[in-house]
Amino acid sequence: MNNAKFPAKLIEIESFRDDRGHLFEQFIIVEAETGEQFWIQDLLLYCDNEMKGKIIEIDFSVSQSFSGDNLVKQDNKEKKIVVKKMYSGNKYSLDYPTFYGEIVGRMDDPSELIVDVGSGTISVSINKKEVDNFLIGDYIKIRSSLVQF
């Protein structure tokens, strides 16, 4: 297995343009099959308005922080996504998601883990020095600070 695929419904696109009107970056809100909504930075400008409301299969990455404190092994075997709302009534109130899942493979680069979070698989980038500490079959929890294509 060398790719991660996550089916999600595209809810919203927030685009950013330069002074000449050229699209240079966008964020999207997606909804997992299990109902959790969260932001993804779409640096590749993959999504467009025609995709809104549709189920798309995406490959996105969550990274371990430089300190490594946002990634830990779990004794319990949970596969889920937790997204806290900072306050209700505003689409911008979504907090960064925390992913719980099982390491089911690696990408071509061994520091890129493929993690089954229950509603799909995601890519988790870990520090190169940590490669031997996270093995296929381990359950992990990663608090994201940025989710991106």
Rank of each mutant, 00 (worst) to 15 (best):
N3W: 14
N3P: 05
K5I: 10
K5F: 03
P7Q: 15
P7T: 15
P7C: 15
K9C: 06
K9G: 01
S15G: 11
S15F: 06
S15L: 14
F16S: 12
F16Q: 06
D19V: 15
R20S: 02
H22E: 12
H22T: 11
L23R: 08
F27E: 08
I28A: 10
V30C: 06
V30T: 04
E36A: 08
W39Q: 09
Q41P: 14
L43Y: 12
L45M: 13
L45R: 13
C47G: 06
D48P: 10
D48W: 11
N49F: 15
K52W: 01
K52D: 01
K54N: 08
I55M: 10
E57Q: 04
E57N: 14
E57G: 12
E57A: 02
I58D: 05
F60D: 07
F60E: 05
F60M: 06
V62H: 05
Q64H: 05
F66W: 06
G68Q: 02
N70P: 07
L71A: 00
V72M: 03
V72A: 13
K73V: 06
K73I: 15
D75I: 15
E78F: 13
V83W: 11
K84V: 12
K85N: 08
Y87P: 13
S88L: 14
S88Q: 03
G89D: 07
G89Q: 12
N90I: 15
K91A: 09
S93D: 14
Y96N: 12
P97V: 12
F99A: 01
Y100A: 02
E102R: 10
I103Q: 02
I103V: 09
V104D: 00
V104S: 05
V104L: 05
S111G: 05
E112K: 14
G120R: 03
G120L: 10
I122M: 08
S123C: 11
V124Q: 02
V124R: 08
S125L: 13
I126A: 14
N127W: 08
K128C: 01
K129T: 11
E130V: 14
V131C: 12
V131G: 00
N133V: 02
F134C: 14
G137F: 06
G137Y: 03
Y139Q: 01
K141L: 06
K141H: 03
F149E: 10
